[in-house]
Every structure is written in C-alpha cells, then in structure tokens.
Lab assay of single mutants.
Amino acid sequence: MKVIFLQDVKGKGKKGEIKNVPDGYARNFLFKKGLAVEATPANLKELE
C-alpha cells in the first residue's frame, strides 16, 4: 500500500515521503498512530 508519511518514522520514511509499505503495517500501526495516510489522489493533491 502506498502511504504518505506525516511524521518521520525511524527506518521506514521521513515526513512528506511517499512509499510502499505492507498493508497490515499501514493499517495497524501507521494509520492508527497518525504517522501516515493512504496515498489517494485527494491526499496527494493536498501534499502539493
């Protein structure tokens, strides 16, 4: 799953980066803790 990092995550990505991460990791950790959002067209547009 492609995500946009909202904060630096040690060993995974830095704020503003767009990266592919495993689905479970994204849903169960990154999204729940507010560290990233899914890289949807709407979210990508907001990032610009």
Rank of each mutant, 00 (worst) to 15 (best):
Q7A: 14
D8Q: 04
F5T: 00
E46G: 12
K45L: 14
A42S: 11
Q7E: 13
L44W: 06
K10Q: 13
L30E: 02
E38F: 04
F5R: 00
G11Y: 08
A36K: 00
P22G: 08
N20D: 13
G16V: 00
I4L: 10
A36S: 01
Q7F: 14
E17Q: 11
V3W: 01
K45P: 06
T40A: 05
N43P: 04
G11A: 05
R27W: 11
L47E: 06
A26F: 12
K12W: 15
K12I: 15
G13K: 01
V21M: 11
L6S: 03
K33N: 15
G13R: 01
V37A: 09
T40N: 09
F31D: 04
K15L: 06
G13N: 02
E48G: 12
A42F: 07
M1N: 04
V37R: 08
K45F: 10
L35D: 01
K14E: 06
K10V: 11
D23A: 15
L30A: 01
K10G: 07
M1F: 06
M1D: 02
E17Y: 02
N43R: 12
N20A: 11
F29Q: 10
L44M: 11
E48V: 13
L6G: 01
G16W: 10
I4P: 00
P22D: 13
K15G: 03
E48A: 14
D23G: 11
E46T: 13
G24K: 11
Q7R: 13
A42K: 11
N28A: 07
K32E: 12
F29L: 08
V21I: 08
L35N: 01
L30F: 02
K45E: 12
E38N: 04
T40I: 06
F29K: 08
A26Y: 09
F5L: 07
K12D: 06
V37L: 09
F5Y: 07
A26R: 02
K10N: 10
K45W: 10
G34P: 00
K2H: 10
I4V: 09
Y25Q: 04
P41Y: 12
K15P: 04
K45R: 14
K15R: 13
I4N: 01
D8M: 04
Q7W: 09
F31A: 02
L35T: 02
A36E: 01
G13F: 12
G24L: 12
G16S: 04
D23L: 14
Y25M: 08
D23V: 15
L47F: 14
A26Q: 05
F5V: 00
M1R: 07
E17G: 02
K15S: 06
M1T: 11
K45Q: 13
K14V: 10
L35R: 02
G34V: 03
V3L: 03
K32P: 15
M1K: 06
V21Q: 04
P22M: 08
G13M: 03
L47V: 10
A26T: 07
G13W: 10
L6F: 03
K19A: 10
E17V: 04
N28I: 07
K14F: 12
G24V: 11
K33G: 09
K14R: 13
K2G: 04
F29S: 06
L35A: 04
Q7G: 05
A36M: 01
L30H: 01
F5N: 01
G34F: 08
G13D: 01
I18P: 01
G24M: 12
F31Q: 03
E46I: 15
E48L: 14
K2S: 11
G16M: 05
P22F: 08
G24F: 13
K32R: 12
E48P: 09
I4S: 01
M1L: 14
K2V: 14
K45T: 09
K2I: 14
F29E: 14
A36H: 00
I18N: 01
V3F: 00
G24D: 15
K12L: 15
K33Q: 13
F5K: 00
Y25L: 08
E48W: 09
I4T: 01
G34T: 03
A42L: 09
K12R: 14
N28V: 05
G13V: 05
L47S: 07
M1P: 04
V37E: 06
V37G: 02
F31P: 03
R27M: 11
R27L: 13
L47M: 11
V21K: 00
M1I: 15
A42R: 11
K14D: 06
K10I: 12
V37D: 02
F31I: 12
L6V: 10
L30V: 00
V9H: 02
V3Y: 00
R27A: 07
F31V: 08
K19D: 03
K45I: 11
V9W: 04
Y25S: 03
N43I: 12
P22W: 07
K15H: 05
K14S: 09
V3P: 00
G34L: 08
V9L: 06
F29T: 10
Y25N: 04
K15N: 03
K14M: 11
N43T: 11
F29D: 13
D23Y: 14
L30S: 00
F31L: 14
N43V: 12
V9R: 01
V37H: 04
N43M: 13
E46L: 15
A26E: 08
I18R: 03
D8K: 04
N28M: 10
N20I: 15
E48Y: 11
P22Q: 09
P22V: 07
G34M: 08
A36W: 01
K33A: 12
Q7P: 00
K10E: 14
M1G: 03
G34W: 05
E46S: 12
E48H: 13
F5A: 00
V37N: 02
K32D: 10
V3K: 00
D23H: 13
Q7K: 14
K2Y: 15
A26V: 07
V3G: 00
A42Q: 11
G13H: 10
E38W: 06
E17R: 02
L35W: 12
A39V: 09
N28E: 14
G34N: 09
E17S: 06
Y25T: 04
M1Y: 06
E17H: 05
P41V: 13
V21T: 02
V3D: 00
V21Y: 06
V21G: 00
G11D: 09
Y25A: 05
R27E: 10
L47K: 08
N20S: 12
K19V: 11
A42T: 11
V37M: 10
E17I: 03
L44G: 06
V3Q: 00
V9I: 08
V9T: 03
V21H: 01
G34R: 08
A26H: 03
G13Q: 02
F31E: 05
P41G: 08
P41D: 13
